[in-house]
């Protein structure tokens, strides 16, 4: 039976068991959240032994080089010796600046990290509660302008962290935030390029950042943002996005309501269906898809079949961790 050695102690691991599952089974505390290789909160470092490539998928080159890997995705053939799972270095203290309800279920939470983060629009952070629970949240703030970080939290019944963030925390409370991660982000282009942004629910958060970052960078080409929700109340950034629409010739906001009672200023239907019906040919477009996995995966195939190249489709599927909606980083693996 393969062995894992951590801080001088060895633990057995079943052949098909992940390193994370084996360590948790033996009572070793390893931070973790999505368990799908997306959130990166279970990142550990191998000091000796062979780490399979799939356990390092999506990690930064520098991390790969240093032997870091995702414990939840790691099922090595042989033994491994690991650095102790003290992930503190990856987190820093932050303070809650304020929280604000944006409709019935979504809260906007603004945090001030001790040291400003350098991030790309579209990236996410892991947020750690004082009791150690971790969830990932996409950053909705505009990078490079203010040090405060904005996240959008959807309150889910039974969601430990989301109910805490929406109902309990207050200005001045301490949390911890990780370094930014994720590869679904905006980089300025030299050539004019049309962009299609489709988000459902709090999948709007990274798109809210990407759209404003692109406009801020003087992006040439149309930017079409489709935000979808079952009800008008779920379109929780309706007014700021309408203002942005009015202020920029090349920014177009398309609010979509998939349930009944569609107000006059919204489009009836699911955001992905409405958006992909609108454009016949997406060749040369850059596409960003954020929200629940079913929408993201389906829209991704459709966008590709409509001509968008694999390298231009950026997808971020929000997995559920516990009962909280957790953003994850299903990303463009084959796109280099």
């Amino acid at each position: 039976m393969p062995k894992i050695t951590v801080a001088g102690s060895s633990f057995d691991r079943a052949a098909d068991e992940s390193v994370l599952d084996a360590l948790l089974r033996h009572g070793v505390a390893v931070p973790n959240s999505c368990r799908k290789g997306a959130c990166q909160s279970c990142m550990m470092r191998a000091m000796d032994g062979y780490v399979p490539a799939e356990a390092q998928a999506g990690l930064k080159e520098t991390f790969v080089h240093e032997g870091y890997f995702l414990a939840c995705q790691c099922r090595p053939d042989g033994d491994l010796t690991l650095a102790s799972p003290d992930n503190n270095a990856a987190f820093q203290p932050a303070t809650v600046v304020f929280t604000e309800a944006l409709g019935e279920t979504v809260h906007r939470v603004v945090l001030s990290p001790e040291t400003p983060l350098h991030y790309h629009a579209g990236q996410f952070i892991n947020l750690r509660r004082p009791d150690g629970l971790i969830r990932s949240y996409s950053l909705a703030s505009l990078p490079g302008t203010i040090p405060e970080l904005e996240i959008h939290v959807k309150r889910l019944p039974g969601g430990a962290v989301s109910t805490w963030l929406c109902d309990t925390i207050k200005a001045g409370d301490p949390v911890e935030v990780s370094a930014p991660a994720g590869t679904c982000f905006y980089l300025p282009t030299r050539e004019p390029q049309n962009m299609l942004l489709i988000g459902t629910g709090t999948g709007l958060a990274p798109l809210f950042s990407i759209a404003r970052d692109a406009l801020h960078a003087g992006h040439q080409g149309g930017i079409h943002l489709y935000h979808g929700s079952r009800s008008r109340d779920g379109l929780y950034r309706h007014h700021p996005l309408r203002d942005l629409h009015a202020a920029h010739d090349n920014f177009h906001y398309h609010p979509c309501v998939s349930g009944r009672d569609v107000p006059d200023d919204c489009i009836p239907g699911r955001a992905d269906a409405v958006a992909l019906h609108e454009f016949g040919n997406l060749a040369g477009w850059r596409v960003y898809l954020c929200g629940l996995p079913a929408m993201v995966h389906a829209a991704r195939t459709q966008a590709y079949l409509k001509g968008a190249s694999l390298a231009d489709i950026h997808a971020d599927a929000f997995e559920l961790a516990g009962r909280d909606e957790n953003r994850g980083a299903a990303d463009e693996a084959a796109t280099g």
Binding site: R300, Y304, L305, G307, A330, D331, A333, A334, T335
Partner: peptide
């Protein structure tokens, strides 16, 4: 190539997978 394969109904079912990254790879 992959777009052609996915739109060819005589073979697309062999390639139809939820994980597009995996298929494209």
């Amino acid at each position: 190539f992959y777009r052609k394969v996915l739109t060819d109904s005589s073979i697309s079912h062999f390639f139809d997978s939820v994980d597009m990254d995996d298929q494209a790879a």
